[in-house]
């Protein structure tokens, strides 16, 4: 449902991932993994496994740690929301590094996103463009995440809320909405003041009810010997 970058995988990704699969603990592949992070940034692809592998190797040899690379990994991990990739990376990064300013900023950004405080997020992101702008596709990825969270929660929502969540206003907002109406089954009501999101399993949970009340066959099987 959420944006899962990295779905399109050119030939070279395959080889690096193979490298990781074959040498998951080999410090020699560290430089390859570092340049692969740069490549993911440049080509807007993503591989959690490769990045975790790199963080693991840093964890084994802290002296080789490259802070700039780690920051890029973290930004990429934010873009993978709603998946838990950001936490997965943070679990592997030494605390003293996490106390540095850039890392605190990233943690704050993650916190705003995890708690759906989009307005605060965009304000904070605005103040830290230098960190985020080096990774192309950042804004779109977060907008994708915001739309994901909205559409599992709302059937209809005020246009203002939508605008705030994706940080778009005015004519650009009209364009975004028009695109969604034409391509993804959205609709507008009350002269465009209310956005109607398409129905899915999560914004009309009734659909999923009462499946739990059946008894699985293997439980019934237990008493069959008694019954015959």
């Amino acid at each position: 449902m959420g944006p899962m970058p990295g779905a399109q995988a050119p030939q070279q990704i395959f080889t690096i991932e193979q490298l990781v699969a074959l040498n998951p603990y080999n410090p020699d592949i560290l430089p390859d993994l570092e340049s692969y992070v740069e490549e993911q940034v440049a080509t807007q692809t993503y591989s959690l496994d490769c990045n975790l592998c790199l963080l693991r190797l840093y964890q084994f040899q802290p002296a080789r740690m490259n802070v700039h690379i780690i920051i890029k990994i973290l930004v990429k991990a934010l873009m993978a929301l709603p998946a838990t990739d950001f936490s997965l990376c943070m679990f592997l990064i030494p605390e003293r590094l996490q106390m540095e300013e850039t890392f605190l900023t990233l943690a704050t950004l993650a916190h705003f996103l995890e708690t759906s405080r989009f307005r605060e997020f965009w304000d904070e992101a605005n103040r830290n463009r230098d960190i985020l702008e080096v990774v192309p596709g950042f804004e779109q990825a977060i907008q994708g995440y915001a739309i994901h969270v909205l559409s599992i929660t709302y059937q209809r929502l005020p246009r203002t809320l939508f605008a705030e969540a994706i940080n778009v206003e005015g004519l650009s907002l009209d364009k975004v909405l028009e695109h969604q109406v034409n391509n993804n089954g959205w609709a507008l009501e009350k002269g465009g003041k209310v956005v109607v999101l398409p129905l899915n399993e999560d914004n009309q949970p009734v659909l999923r009810r009462n499946t739990a009340d059946s008894i699985p066959l293997e439980h019934v099987a237990k008493i069959l010997p008694v019954l015959v």
């Binding site: 959420g2 709603p82 599992i152």
Partner: peptide, 24 residues
């Protein structure tokens, strides 16, 4: 968001015990 879980295949699943939706 917190009651939704991402599986390995990328699908999203709700773990919520109480579920709801908001209409306006």
């Amino acid at each position: 968001h917190k009651t939704h879980v991402i599986n390995y295949d990328g699908t999203v699943l709700s773990n919520a015990d109480v579920d709801f939706y908001v209409d306006d």
